[in-house]
Structure formats: C-alpha cells, structure tokens
C-alpha cells in the first residue's frame, strides 16, 4: 500500500517476474547506450556540433566574399553560389531569408557553415527533414555529402519574429 509506511523488511532484492523485467529493461538500456557511440564512429549521419566563435560582422563579410567569388547564377535577385567540391560554403540566416542559394554536386563533400546575423534560426532542409540550430555569434560547420539530387528548400524552424513563417532558402544539387 503506497500511502502507508512500508512494514519493516521492505528493502529486499527483486524476485520473480519483477527480477526478470529489471533484467530485460537493463539489457535494452545497454543496447541503446551502445547504439549512439557506435553510430558516432561508424554511422554516416552525426550532428557533431563542430563550431567556432565568430562575430556577426566577420561572418557577414565572409558570406559576401563567398558570394562574390563563387556566384554562378541568380534567381529573383538572390545569387546562386556553387561551393567548390571539398571546399567551404557560407550560408547566412537572417530575418527572414537564408542567403544565398547554394549549389552542390551529388556525392561530393562540402563544409557548409551556418550562422545568423540577428536572432536564433533553424536550418531545416526539406523534404529530407534534416534540422540544425543556427545561432548568432557561432559558426556551425556541417560536413555534408548530398546523396540525392534535386531542389531542396530550406525553411526556418526556430521562431524569429513575425515574418518567421516566410523565411526560406534553397539548396540545388546536380
């Protein structure tokens, strides 16, 4: 009876089905405890959080240089910028767009930098549904390898003010 003081001798080892259940639960927890480190070393999708401190001004300048050096096109006034395979690309999240449009090649590996010039934002790549946090003052580096091609919209999924719902961007993979 859970609402009364337990009779003396209540402290005892589990027995019977309860003991069996504790064993099963512990086994399952050990399996899950192994799965995450295993995937960290052998899996191909890991949010390692590689990141650096960066000022908003410095990052903004780097984005501008990146666009100037690598622009390959334009869509509705937004530059389309191709990252050289193996190279670094810089994406800026701001109220309320992702700048610029990024162009990649399937099967190549890139270092994609994410940062914000104002509030916190969410980098959400659709329809793959891959999601990463973007913070002002932090250069968040994703080492990505696109394994499919097409046009992939980016949406913001961290609340960033009244225009949040219209904050989008794009990654094009050929």
């Amino acid at each position: 009876m859970s609402i009364y003081n337990p009779p003396a001798g209540w402290f005892k080892a589990p027995a019977g089905v309860e003991r069996l259940w504790v064993g099963l639960a512990l086994t399952w927890c050990i399996i899950m405890s192994i799965a995450m480190p295993y995937w960290h070393f052998y899996g191909k999708q890991n949010p390692t959080g590689e990141s650096y401190k960066v000022s908003v001004q410095e990052y903004g300048q780097r984005v501008a240089e990146f666009v100037k050096d690598n622009q390959v096109g334009d869509e509705g006034g937004i530059p389309i910028v191709e990252i050289p395979p193996g190279g670094d690309g810089y994406l800026l999240a701001r109220m309320w767009s992702f700048y610029p449009i990024i162009k990649l090649k399937q099967g190549q590996t890139y270092r994609l930098h994410l940062s914000s010039s104002d509030l916190q934002h969410g980098f959400s790549l659709q329809p793959l549904n891959m999601n990463f946090q973007v913070l002002p003052g932090y250069d968040h580096v994703l080492t990505i390898t696109p394994t499919s091609s097409g046009i992939f919209p980016i949406i913001c999924n961290e609340f960033c003010g009244i225009g949040h719902h219209a904050m989008t961007g794009r990654i094009i993979v050929e």
């Binding site: 990141s51 650096y52 401190k53 960066v54 410095e58 990052y59 780097r62 670094d88 932090y138 250069d139």
Partner: peptide, 8 residues
Amino acid sequence: ALPPATLP
C-alpha cells in the same frame, strides 16, 4: 573552450 573561427 570554443576556438574563434579562422575564416579563410
């Protein structure tokens, strides 16, 4: 402990 970014 986070290092500053070295932007090339």
